[in-house]
Amino acid sequence: MAEAEKRHPVTIEINGTRRTFEVESRKLLVHLIRDDLGLTGTHIGCDTSQCGACTVEVDGLATKSCTVLAVMADGASITTIEGVSPAGSALDPVQTAFHEHHALQCGFCTPGMIMSARQLLRAHPDPGHDDIRHGIAGNICRCTGYQNIVRAIESLVAKG
């Protein structure tokens, strides 16, 4: 390329820590998270906003990070799966429920699924079976048939 591509300063709070980067306009948020921050728990599955493996929380809302420009996240607070239960701390209740109910096989969709389950339970503290299925509709799992994922989330409702 003849001239260097213009970069923009981006400051985000990532899992509680403020960080500033210089990014090209076209950089995707998921690439900032994985490549620049090294937080590879956020996965790229389809890269077309379908599968939800790249789901993170942006200002508290579950978001497909493959469909957000990093520059658009300037000023945002972002939580990734690494921030849900930082190293050395106990697992988040949603993670524990997934573990106890065998809600994963290969595990590729799990980080995104957990972010969506967290949003579902925040928005809807007492979801029914259909609400749970509707709430995780943006996350595709090709192993489990969703049965144990739904059971795991239901177990959290039962516990109150």
């Binding site: 579950a62 978001t63 957000v68 949003q119 579902l120 709430g135």
Partner: peptide, 12 residues
Amino acid sequence: ANLIADPQVRNR
């Protein structure tokens, strides 16, 4: 709104 896409897409 409930019939549009999925929760993550509806958020943005």
